[in-house]
Design a protein around this nucleic acid. Structure first.
Lengths: 221, 221
DNA sequence: CTCGTTTTGTTCTCACGTTCACAAACTCCT
DNA sequence: AGGAGTTTGTGAACGTGAGAACAAAACGAG
């Protein structure tokens, strides 16, 4: 690695690369589980579904962790990527909105194994309180501030209906959460410094529909 | 509409624009529901959470549907975008994998209202067959081919565990499905001509974690 | 009818992301 | 030790996307 002073610690990795690092991480885990200890950029790129030049360029932003003529050490590279992303320790997460989707999210086994830990499930509906979902008791939404404070929660997941999402986001931000994963089909507005990512089923389907329509329209051979 | 010859029917709209059209569609629907009949690019951009120059440029790919000095007619523009995306009629969709997530998807009310119709729920687990989920009977996975044929299904949703996802995708493609929305945390490989979009909770959380780590690391002012 | 106001549609420039192509660096074989 | 064969890391070319800025077009007032 080239000499790096403490002050330039914050190299900036392109956003497109950041979005692919988790994919590489998963691919490396899969290779490791198969007992593979070393792999080339070509092999890893295939496992991750990208082109090898792009993979190498992405990895080069992290540092120089490969060996020319040999490839990458699977475990070592996996650790380096995990460290870069910040999932070497667990991040506490709260889920707000325990409807159908909230249930599915709470039961999602990938949380724990991938660096996240659900510390609380919240819902405004009193009928759900005291019930257990995925082994965790559902608590009132008003407990949010206390939970965030006590567990130092930085990441919140919103799985409430669209009309309630902005209110939940506002409360989350006020409580100190600065990263939000939004499953509600609505645009959230948050202050600068707060990150929001959205997952939207309708949008994904509509994008597919657009391309599908294209295929159908162009195909009349 | 401006005169358009049959041969130039396939204008190509940039992918980034295609991904935003559904957002505009939703924003227009919201404005319409509020009784608003006309809006400026500025107002619509705010509702959609984008910048107005980008919005105008996106809309310009579809055609010239606004009026200078006035703005856009909400209902008219909404119809034009819906037509461009291809959601003026309903698309039949099959969901494979009726676990926690599959349940949530089947119950998702946005399907019907946004141009999609769930024609079947499939699962390999016999214990689920004949049960009703969201008013639809769960059927054996082996019924896939028949259902696709009879309903002319082009879009499939995969919500099975990761290890089974590739098999399901292969069967879908063989049955004639050419657009897949994949919720399983794995890379799918499909032949050219088949579109895959993936929705991946772990990846989204890890991207948030990366930025969160950055904030925490840079903040000690 | 003409002028001022408003707002769209589009052009231009810059930044970002992807891919190619190759030098540098490592291993292995003779 | 030296040369052939691999594979990484990166510079350079290309394509796509974002945002500023402005001309063209519509409306309304007088």
């Amino acid at each position: 690695m080239t000499a790096r002073t403490p002050t330039d610690a914050v190299r900036d990795i392109p956003e497109a690369t950041v979005a692919r690092l988790p994919v590489y991480l998963r691919a490396l885990t899969a290779l490791g589980d198969q007992g593979i200890t070393t792999c080339s950029s070509e092999a890893l790129a295939t496992a991750a579904g990208v082109n090898s030049a792009k993979l190498r360029k992405d990895l080069s932003y992290l540092g120089s962790y490969g060996t020319r003529g040999v490839g990458y050490d699977v475990d070592y590279l996996r650790y380096q990527i995990a460290r870069e992303i910040g999932v070497t320790q667990d991040w506490p997460v709260v889920i707000v909105g325990i409807g159908n989707l909230g249930h599915a999210l709470a039961n999602f086994s990938g949380f724990r194994s991938r660096g996240f830990r659900v510390v609380a499930l919240l819902d405004a509906d009193q009928a759900l309180h005291e019930q257990q979902v995925a082994g965790i008791v559902v608590r009132p939404f008003d407990d949010l501030e206390q939970i965030v404070r006590e567990n130092d929660v930085a990441i919140g997941v919103i799985s409430v209906p669209a009309f309630a999402a902005q209110d939940v986001a506002d409360r989350m931000v006020a409580a100190g959460i600065s990263s939000i994963l939004n499953f509600a089909p609505t645009v959230l507005s948050v202050p600068p410094g707060v990150d929001v990512r959205k997952v939207d089923l309708s949008i994904e389907l509509q994008i597919l529909a657009y391309h599908e329509q294209r295929k159908a329209h162009g195909e009349p051979v």
